[in-house]
Design a protein around this nucleic acid. Sequence first.
DNA 1: CTGAAAGCGCTAACAG
DNA 2: CTGTTAGCGCTTTCAG
Lengths: 333, 333
Amino acid sequence: MGIQEIATVTGLSKSTVSRALRGLPSVAGTTIDQVRRVADELGYVPSSAAAGLATGRQRAVGVVVPVIDRWFYVKALGGVDAELRRAGHDLVLYNLGGPGGDRDRAFRRSMLRHRVDALVLLSLVLDETERAELELARHPMIVIGGPAPGLRNVGVDDAVVSHLAVRHLVSLGHRAVAYMGGQDEDGMNVAVPYLRHDGFVDAMASCGVDPRPTWMVDGRFSFAGGVEAGAALLADPTDRPTAVFCASDEMALGLLLAASRAGLRVPEDLSVIGVDGHEYGATVGLTTIAQDPEDQGRTAARAVLAEVEGLPTGPLTPAAAELVVRGTTAPPR
Amino acid sequence: MGIQEIATVTGLSKSTVSRALRGLPSVAGTTIDQVRRVADELGYVPSSAAAGLATGRQRAVGVVVPVIDRWFYVKALGGVDAELRRAGHDLVLYNLGGPGGDRDRAFRRSMLRHRVDALVLLSLVLDETERAELELARHPMIVIGGPAPGLRNVGVDDAVVSHLAVRHLVSLGHRAVAYMGGQDEDGMNVAVPYLRHDGFVDAMASCGVDPRPTWMVDGRFSFAGGVEAGAALLADPTDRPTAVFCASDEMALGLLLAASRAGLRVPEDLSVIGVDGHEYGATVGLTTIAQDPEDQGRTAARAVLAEVEGLPTGPLTPAAAELVVRGTTAPPR
DNA sequence: CTGAAAGCGCTAACAG
DNA sequence: CTGTTAGCGCTTTCAG
């Protein structure tokens, strides 16, 4: 059943078996082979709980996402996972499940159980209480996406993202540029939407263009939202922007559909630029500010794992965000 | 630090504290309150490893996915998660990470550690060795998606799915109907692609129509793949199908783009039907055979949790698949 | 290179 | 309703 069985069968001690199973260098090669063979024959399955209790290390890290079904989160999750796997750690998923998710309970009931050695928070900003509670667990934490007070974070600089997009549009000659963003995701307290929004306003100002309040629309960071907000934005032929900066590719894709429904050609009648580097965008030729969430996930995992090992925690360099010009942006007519 | 501290501070015994913390009915209400208060003051954080070791239950279930970034898997994962959370269990994600994922190592190194009480496999078919290994852990397992030999599964009946789609097309008057599917996902050993393919052939036969081999194309179950395969399929104006059944909405979306690039109008020149009920499809008006992966996830989680509790394991009813007629299908001209 | 003994922090009978 | 006594299965000093 356990390590003990192997010990009695091989005539070795529990300790030696334990060491052999872990391949410690202080064990004779022959012993290791023998132990492994017997373990296999016996169908031995290690108990991570016992190991965890003895060492204080669970070899697992938690990943907290506000919702699971968003492109960025899925990609970042994949990156974190890849790196954890490489390091032999498991990934415990904490999905706050959006607005209805009973965030508080999820926090204390699950994350506060020492099941994981560290936490990767996706785009979350914690409030005071939450921070205090998580402090109790005393494990390393890191944030992917928007900066969070008091925590290290990896992610693009959202102000830069907005500036890149606006500058591209303005340099093409656009002045009538609209912004499609989204509010905080219903109390999920995510910083990115605000940062991109403010970045847009800033960038416009620095280009000497005044953003029009009626051209700042809410696409809810989703495809469907982009279609709706886009339809509204493009409804009045006498008062249309010549370009739109969408704070996510999913919204931009929606806007593209709305534009075609409105009989507008892109980029001739309307320029569209998104943010992300979504695969769909690539295949439809969407100009975008691309980022690599998978890589951000890997970086975050590596950093937090290093912190678990007690290595010094250096500052993290912001992730790359790069203007990818494709077919949806052009000079206005 | 642990439960002991609380015991000494309150003057109670470890056992009483343990019971109070778990709110067992055999503890005085006042005691419970007191213990909880002291626990809070002390910043007590329970150790799931210790609890798990003592009880043999980890209060966690593993979810194994072939890859993470697919609509179906993400939705199903969300469903599993929701149900687990409700039951107070954590979710450990095992991502095989596609073809390059070193499936074997992932299996034995992680899943075989008793970190979880049960396993939910997404669309995976295990080979003999894998089954044997997982048997060792002796925990309940269930599959979502295609049936797997020797395991219970929840999911739609893929033969029915194909029949529904084909019958819809044929009843509209189509005879020249093509199929867009995909092969096994590069050694990930997933059953669904084959089932839908065979279902299509069957359904065509039962409708008295011969499927054309050159009209059975591979869209790799992705948007980009759908665009490519669609372009090829529609390339020759003298030899085009009048309708296409796509084994997933993502491919259907791609095909829609390919059709518009080829100058075809949908549904006038070409009818398209997909499978899934993807949100994007809904907003572009894609006719589809809709299913509810989230619900399938919840069902699977519930079933496997019940099995963990030792409840009798009844058979599972197949998940619902429903024809949703929207704007992309119509009679051929 | 291997063994003996002492826990890791909690739960679970079994008594009161 | 509460306390006592054993472990759960592994890792880790400390000695050989």
